[in-house]
Amino acid sequence: MPVGGADGTVRIGLLGRGIGSSLTPIMHEAEGRRLGLAYRYDLIDFDRLGLDDFDLGAVLETARDLGYRGLNVTYPFKQAIIPLLDSLAPEAAAIGAVNTVVLGNGTRVGQNTDCWGFAQSVRKGLGAVPIDHVVQIGAGGAGAAVAHALVQLGARRIDIIDADVGKAEALARKVEDTRGTLAQGLAPSHLDEVIERAVGVVNATPVGMEKYPGTPIDPGLLRRRQWVADIIYFPRETELLRRAQALGCRVLPGGGMAIYQAVRAFHLFSGVEPDAAEMGRTFAAHA
């Protein structure tokens, strides 16, 4: 049975910066109505509210006091929120990043639905593409989930590129500890030498969002034989994907990941299994 506040409402929020274009609230609320739930989803945009990063703890406490059932977490808080939680689900602990916090019974439990969401998006959106050697751009909270998803999908080698080389190397070590995947963390200066051999490229940075326009790499480095995925879905088509498609690459927008992570989060928040197809149709109608 769904667990709501004192008035029976399942109240959820999204914590992040520059999230005004997010379709997550629309997907959640539409599915809640379809299932007959009193379901409310709020945007808690630190930019719009003029909040500093150090206000994260206070916002989390306020959400709990107001009876929120849970929170989704996006850039730049997926790792910063971890010390503020009471416990982590096993997958979130293994990944080292949280995008979903379940609030209830006085506890704050961190979950990660991004990993399954990205893997499911690849399965549904790209099908049986070669995945043995992938270059991933970005080693932050979303990047951690994507790297683990790539391992689950069968990647044998992952080159993780990040300006913070220490962060990229740490993520590579963590990925190698899972299923023996060969992974290495590299500085952007090494991109030219590794991307040539890769079969796939994933952008797991915020570069390409409406707030951070541009491309995370030089699109001229891409090859027609490669597939290119982006975790960003606003804008619906990033500049990276537009340029990659023009080259003849198969592309995967971030919409699929957004849908599937929301599907799993909805169940964690409400206790009710949502219909992924319905949530996908809601997303498509507003994209």
Rank of each mutant, 00 (worst) to 15 (best):
V3L: 14
V3D: 11
G4W: 13
I12A: 05
L14C: 14
P25A: 10
I26S: 14
I26Q: 15
M27G: 05
E29Y: 13
G32V: 09
R33P: 06
R34P: 09
L37I: 11
A38R: 15
L43F: 10
D45C: 06
F46N: 15
F46K: 02
R48W: 14
L51Q: 04
D52P: 03
F54I: 10
D55K: 02
G57H: 09
A58F: 12
A63T: 12
A63C: 10
G67S: 08
V73P: 14
F77D: 03
L85T: 00
S87M: 03
A89Q: 15
A89F: 11
E91F: 05
A94Y: 01
I95P: 05
I95R: 03
N99R: 06
T100F: 08
L103C: 08
V109E: 11
T113K: 02
C115L: 13
W116V: 08
Q120D: 09
R123F: 01
L126A: 04
V129Y: 08
V134G: 12
V134L: 06
V135W: 09
I137E: 01
I137R: 04
G140R: 02
G143R: 01
A144V: 02
V146H: 00
A147G: 10
H148C: 11
L153R: 13
L153C: 06
R156L: 11
R157P: 05
I158L: 04
I160R: 00
A163P: 04
D164T: 01
D164C: 01
V165N: 03
G166R: 00
E169S: 03
G185P: 00
P188D: 02
D192P: 08
E193S: 15
V194G: 07
E196A: 07
A198Y: 08
V202I: 05
P206H: 02
V207S: 05
M209S: 05
M209H: 06
Y212D: 12
P213W: 04
P213F: 06
P216T: 04
L221F: 03
L221A: 08
R223M: 04
R224Q: 14
Q226G: 09
D230K: 02
D230A: 14
I232M: 05
E237D: 14
L240N: 12
L241T: 04
R242W: 07
A244V: 06
L247P: 08
G248L: 03
M257K: 02
Y260C: 01
V263H: 07
H267S: 14
F269G: 08
S270V: 13
E273N: 11
M279R: 03
A287R: 05
A287Y: 07
